[in-house]
Each structure stands twice: as C-alpha cells, then as structure tokens.
Amino acid sequence: MFVLSGLTNDKSLETFLFIFFLHVYIVTIVANLGLVVIVSNTSNLQSPMYYFLSYLSLVDVFYSSTITPKMLSDLMSMTRTISFEGCALQFFFYGALASIDSLLLSTMSYDRYVAICHPLHYMSIMTKKKCLRLVLLCFSVGFLQSSVQASCAFSLQYCGPNLIDHFYCDAPLVLRLSCSDTVPCELVTVYLVSAMAMGPLLTILLSYFLIIFSILRMKSAEVKKKAFSTCSSHLTCISIFYGTIFFTYLQPPSRAFTLQDKVALVFYTAVTPMLNPLIYSLRNQDVKKTIISTSQDPGLDLEEPGSASGLPRPIRN
C-alpha cells in the first residue's frame, strides 16, 4: 500500500479543485470522443492526418482516465491510498500512453512532411495499410517500453516509507521509496524516457525543417499560407506537450519536488488531453466546417472533394 500526498492539503481549496478538474475531465472525454466520432463518420475527413488524430484523441481519453479519476477521488477523500498493484497499473498505463502520444505526434509530423514536400506521391505513400502499421508501431513501442519500466520498478523491495509526495505513481518518486539498489532501474528509466521524448522530437524537428525548406521554395504566397495552415494545429499541440515535459523533467535529479512541479504535471496529465481536440477544432478549417455543418444539419455527411488546405485527402488501400 502506498499513500499519496495529493494535490493540496488546504481544505479550502479541495472543493474548488475537485469541481474545476471534474469539469476539465468531462470536457476532455466529450471533446476527444466527439472528435473520434466526427472523423470516423465524415467522409471529408478520411485522410491520414485525421486518421492519426482520431487515435491521438482516443489515447488521450485513456491517458486522462489513468490519472484524473484517482486524483478527483483523493481530493474528496480523507485517506489517499493506492494499492501496490494499483500503483503498478497506473505506472504502466501512464508511461505507455504518454509514449504513444509522443510517437503519434511524430507520426503526424511525418504525414505533414509527405503531404507538403511530396504532394504528387502523397496518396501512394500514405496508404491505409501504411497508416495502420505506423499506428500499431506506436502502440507496440509504447507498451513495450512501459512494460520494461514497470517490471523493473515493481520487482524491487519496498519495506520502508510508503508516502509518495505526488498525486499519482510517478517513476522517480516511487523508486526513491525502495530499499533495494535502484541504480539499474533509474538508468533504465532515464534511458527509456529520454528515448521516448527525444526520438520523436528529433523526427518532428527534422520533418519541420524539411517542410519549412520546401515551403520557402514555393513561389505562390497563397500556397505558402495554405501549407503553413495545415501545420498550425499540430505545431500548437507539440509546443504544449513538449513545453510541459521539458519544464517538468529537465531538472537536476537532486532538486526537491515542489508545488510548481505538481502544477506543471497537473497541466500535463489533466489539461493537455483536453486542449488537443479543442485546438484542432478551433484552428483547423476542415474540422471547424464539419462541426458547423453538423450542428446545422445533424444528418449531414460532408462529401466535398479535396481539402481546405489544397493538399491530397483520401487514404488508399
């Protein structure tokens, strides 16, 4: 059994935080599932970018559900405990889904690279089979690396203090409580977390370097604007996702865990999954037009050929 310190010990804040994060969680679930339904039922959005986006939204639903319900329960509970097995499961799914999020964002950057830099071959490169393989690869790598981390951490002996100064079971804080030699597991964790963060980030940076280089070579200002507009939502999501990661985890190992760290991680685990579908809904013209059209005529299925961005649309088998 572990004891979680939770978000706050201030009783006057607990009710406010419970109501606030309950609304955040509800919006997260409704917005992400709504986006999945819109993408799957709208013929105008049957393209690789929205195919990956629907999986990103689905992952965000489970990612948020791994942390937020327990956090909400602890805000209204006198005892903030979690079983050893419950902590291991939370540890495992949190690590797996966070990695899948990162890998899907890098896959979406590859999709944008192909669409802008190789538009004539887009349909032949980004086939339905290839998109499915990329998604399966993201899920396989995410769950595999998390299995290694969780197996290593929870095979150690825990025989002393059991207070985790956090609102969920995070790797560094769990390992600090072990009475075994944690150095091998710490090295495994650092290596895998770094690989899952920096590998996709390098893919994203390389993709956008090539995208920018290709856009600058375009002669038409209108085409440049359309090309940039197809990337704006994705870039916004990447900035929020990695900005929070770097603020939280690029800290000296010896530094004490502070309230600011908790605030950053609340944003990372509870707020960021809510923002992704909202960003794509508000900044992406295709999704925005679909939502407006559906709200005006719920039975309407858009079948307009082409795209607002002028880039190739359908997925080929």
Rank of each mutant, 00 (worst) to 15 (best):
F93C: 04
S43Q: 11
T236R: 12
S147C: 04
A195F: 15
D60G: 00
L177A: 12
S77V: 08
D60Y: 06
Q145G: 04
G310Y: 04
L134K: 07
Q296N: 05
Y55P: 08
K224P: 01
L33F: 09
A171F: 13
V36I: 07
S73V: 00
F16W: 08
D261C: 04
Q285G: 06
T42L: 10
S102F: 02
A308P: 09
C237Q: 10
T258D: 15
P273I: 08
S140K: 01
M108V: 06
L35P: 07
F62G: 15
A96K: 00
D297T: 08
Y55S: 10
V37D: 05
A256Q: 15
S254W: 12
R313A: 14
S254C: 05
D181K: 10
V27R: 11
M49W: 05
Y280I: 11
G142T: 01
P200Q: 03
S54C: 06
L120F: 14
A171C: 10
L206H: 03
C231R: 15
T290N: 07
F2P: 11
N41L: 12
Q90C: 04
C152P: 00
M1A: 12
S99A: 12
I38T: 04
K289V: 10
T127L: 00
S233F: 00
T294F: 00
M71E: 02
S124L: 01
F257I: 02
P161M: 15
S65L: 06
V135M: 13
S239A: 11
L187R: 10
H166I: 02
T79I: 10
P172A: 01
C169V: 07
M76K: 12
V39T: 03
A197S: 14
F52E: 02
K224S: 00
L75P: 14
S180A: 01
A264L: 13
L282Q: 05
S194E: 04
E186T: 12
Q149Y: 11
C138N: 12
R255T: 15
L173R: 10
